[in-house]
C-alpha cells in the first residue's frame, strides 16, 4: 500500500467552492441541550435559551448576548438520537421516569418541604447529604424536580463512573456528568442548568449504619468555588431516609481494593438474599430544601479567597447537619416518617 502522509490520501477532485451553503449545517447547538417543557421527540426548537448561553464567550461578563450563528435558521441536520452534549437523553430519562414513578411514590413515598425554593429558571447548584450503599437520594431528587418543574437536573459525580462499562452509559444518559470544574462551569454559568452535587463524595454513602446522618467532610469546598465562578446560588438540601434504604453493616476493604471501588459494603439488605444486594428497604424519604445561599462575589474570577470558600462550605455543611437533627427529631418512624 502506498504510504499515506498526514491524515490520508485523496480520492477525488475536491470541489471546495461549489459546496452549496444550504447543504449542510444548522444551528451550532444541535447537540440540543434541553430546557423546560420540551418533549422528547421535538427537536425543532432546540436553539433555545441554553444554546444561546453555550455560544456566549466564557469571559464575557455581560452574559448571553450578541453572538449569533450565521446560519442558525438553516435546516437542522438530521440527528438519530437526542443525546445532548453531556450524554443525557431526555427520551431515556422519560422512559425511566415511568418506571421510577411507582418507586418514588409508593416505595420511598418521597416528600418535599420547601420545594418552591428550587428556581424554575436560571442556574443553581444543589448540594445534599449522600447516603446508602447504593444511594437512593440522587434519583429521588432528580426525579422529583424533573417531574415537578419539567427541567433537567444534571448530577455531578466522580470520574470513576466513567471507567465502568455499561454503568457509565446508564449514568450519563440519565443526567450524570463527570464532576470536572469546567463541566460544572459550563452547565451553570453558560447554560444555566440545575446541577446536583454531593460534596461528601463517596465518603457519604460509604459510611456504616452506626455513623448515619453524620455528615462527612465537604471535600475541599470545590462546590463553593464552582458556584462563585458561575455566579449561581447554592441550594442546600437535607435528606432523611436514604441512610435506611441500604444500611452498611460493615465494609470489606480487600474486595474494594481488588475491584477498584471506593468501598465494598456488606449491607443489611444482603441478609435477605441475593436480590437484597440491589433492592433498597422502603424507608420514607423526606427532602427539605433550605434557603438558597447567594454568594456575594463577582463571578468569573480566576481565584477566590480560600478562607471565604472554606467558611461558606463549612456553613452550608453545618446548616444541613442542623436541619438533619431537626428532621430526625420529628421523625416518628423510619418507615412511615
Amino acid at each position: 500500500m502506498r504510504p499515506m502522509a498526514a491524515e490520508g490520501s485523496r480520492r477525488t477532485r475536491p470541489n471546495l467552492v461549489a459546496v452549496p451553503a444550504d447543504e449542510d449545517d444548522g444551528p451550532p447547538d444541535e447537540t440540543g441541550s434541553r430546557t423546560g417543557s420540551e418533549t422528547p421527540g421535538d427537536r425543532s426548537d432546540r436553539d433555545d435559551q441554553s444554546g444561546d448561553h453555550r455560544r456566549t464567550s466564557p469571559d464575557a461578563e455581560s452574559g448571553p448576548s450578541g453572538e449569533h450563528a450565521p446560519d442558525a435558521d438553516d435546516a437542522e441536520p438530521e440527528r438519530l438520537s437526542d443525546v445532548d452534549e453531556w450524554g443525557r437523553s431526555q427520551h431515556l430519562r422519560d422512559l425511566l421516569a415511568q418506571l421510577y414513578d411507582p418507586i418514588y411514590d409508593k416505595w420511598f413515598r418521597v416528600e418535599w418541604e420547601g420545594f418552591e425554593k428550587i428556581p424554575r429558571e436560571g442556574g443553581a447548584l444543589m448540594v445534599a447529604n449522600h447516603a446508602g450503599a447504593i444511594p437512593a437520594d440522587a434519583p429521588s431528587i432528580m426525579h422529583g424536580i424533573e417531574r415537578e418543574l419539567g427541567r433537567p437536573v444534571y448530577g455531578l459525580a466522580d470520574e470513576m463512573f466513567k471507567k465502568v462499562p455499561v454503568v457509565n452509559l446508564a449514568w450519563s444518559r440519565l443526567g450524570g456528568v463527570q464532576a470536572h470544574p469546567d463541566n460544572a462551569y459550563r452547565l451553570l454559568r453558560e447554560q444555566q442548568h440545575l446541577v446536583l452535587v454531593f460534596p461528601e463524595g463517596s465518603k457519604g454513602p460509604g459510611k456504616t449504619y452506626a455513623e448515619r446522618y453524620r455528615l462527612r467532610r465537604f471535600g475541599r469546598g470545590g462546590f463553593v468555588q464552582i458556584a462563585m465562578r458561575a455566579g449561581v446560588p447554592i441550594i442546600p438540601l437535607a435528606i432523611v431516609g436514604s441512610e435506611e434504604t441500604m444500611p452498611i453493616l460493615t465494609k470489606v476493604p480487600a474486595v474494594a481494593r481488588l475491584l477498584g471501588l471506593p468501598y465494598a459494603p456488606i449491607t443489611a439488605n444482603m441478609l435477605l438474599g441475593p436480590l437484597g444486594a440491589l433492592v433498597p428497604f422502603p424507608a420514607k424519604i423526606r427532602i427539605r430544601v433550605l434557603d438558597p445561599v447567594h454568594l456575594d462575589v463577582l463571578p468569573d474570577q480566576p481565584r477566590y479567597s480560600r478562607s471565604r470558600i472554606m467558611d461558606t462550605s463549612e456553613g452550608i455543611r453545618n446548616a444541613i447537619q442542623e436541619e438533619l437533627y431537626d428532621m430526625l427529631r420529628r421523625r416518628h418512624s423510619v418507615w412511615f416518617g
Binding site: D24, G26, P28, R55, E67, P77, R79
Partner: peptide
C-alpha cells in the same frame, strides 16, 4: 472527546458543516 470551537468562531470564522453535517457528507 469534545472540542470547544468558540475561539475560532469569535475570530469570525463560520463553519459550513456541523459534526452531523460532516458525517452525513
Amino acid at each position: 472527546r469534545g472540542i470547544d470551537n468558540r475561539r475560532l468562531k469569535r475570530a469570525g470564522f463560520d463553519y459550513w458543516h456541523t459534526s452531523a453535517g460532516a458525517v452525513r457528507a
